[in-house]
């Protein structure tokens, strides 16, 4: 019943909070119109929220709608704010916190996948080692010369992080990642997913 932030002297100190930081995955359905991404990103930068990952693409061409998946870190209160602030944007149809939705139905996490393209340059043993590791990680070779490989890998963010980490000493050149795409587990679509606890 007390003010939410027990150590805050004023609203100006809201950021200094003892609440634990959590990482959540939010999904939003938005009109695919010019500027919509700028609205979303501007909201995050303007209000000082974090973006760990953001991916966006048109998902229903006839309806002109895109799906934005955002991974963000903040206190539970900030994440609730983010959800409501996103929902306030006029071209946003629905916003759901998939992490909360997963917890509400006793799951650890929503389904989350990322795709990465990874270029490695090397010779001899290093090259062989890279290829061997790619098989272990179920990455595929999509481009190669005798000097390099480009791997394609799909998976949870930490799997990709791990793969990249391992490739560093083996001649890692560059990486391109899509950011997280996510869906709730189970038969329900975004509209019907419950994310209020």
């Amino acid at each position: 019943m007390n003010a939410h932030k027990s150590d805050a002297l004023s609203a100006y100190f809201l950021a200094e909070t003892s609440d634990v930081l959590e990482t959540h995955t939010l999904s939003a359905i938005v009109d695919n119109e010019p500027g919509v991404l700028a609205r979303v990103i501007g909201l995050f930068s303007g209000r000082g929220y974090n973006i760990d990952s953001l991916s966006v693409s048109e998902t229903e061409h006839e309806k002109h709608v895109s799906r934005i998946t955002i991974v963000t870190t903040g206190t539970p209160q900030i994440i609730e704010q983010i959800r409501h602030q996103l929902d306030r944007l006029v071209p946003v149809h629905i916003v759901r916190d998939l992490t909360v939705a997963a917890k509400a139905s006793n799951q650890e996490k929503p389904l989350e996948r990322e795709l990465a393209l990874i270029k490695v340059r090397g010779e001899g043993n290093k090259r062989l080692e890279a290829l061997r590791l790619s098989e272990a990680f179920k990455a595929t070779v999509i481009d190669a010369t005798i000097d390099h490989f480009v791997f394609e890998i799909t998976g949870r963010t930490n799997k990709i992080d791990q793969f990249i980490e391992i490739l560093k000493p083996l001649g890692l050149v560059e990486v391109s990642r899509t950011g997280v795409a996510a869906l709730a587990r189970g038969e329900l679509g975004l509209k019907d997913v419950h994310d209020e606890i």
Partner: peptide, 29 residues
């Protein structure tokens, strides 16, 4: 309005009516 937040109306139950969901729990729980 609130002044010092940790001493803002310390013993009250709070009801908040607002048309904007983002106003709720933004500053005060």
């Amino acid at each position: 309005i609130t002044g010092r937040l940790d001493a803002f109306s310390p013993h009250s139950t709070k009801i908040h009516v607002d048309i904007d969901p983002s106003s709720i729990n933004k500053i005060v729980h």
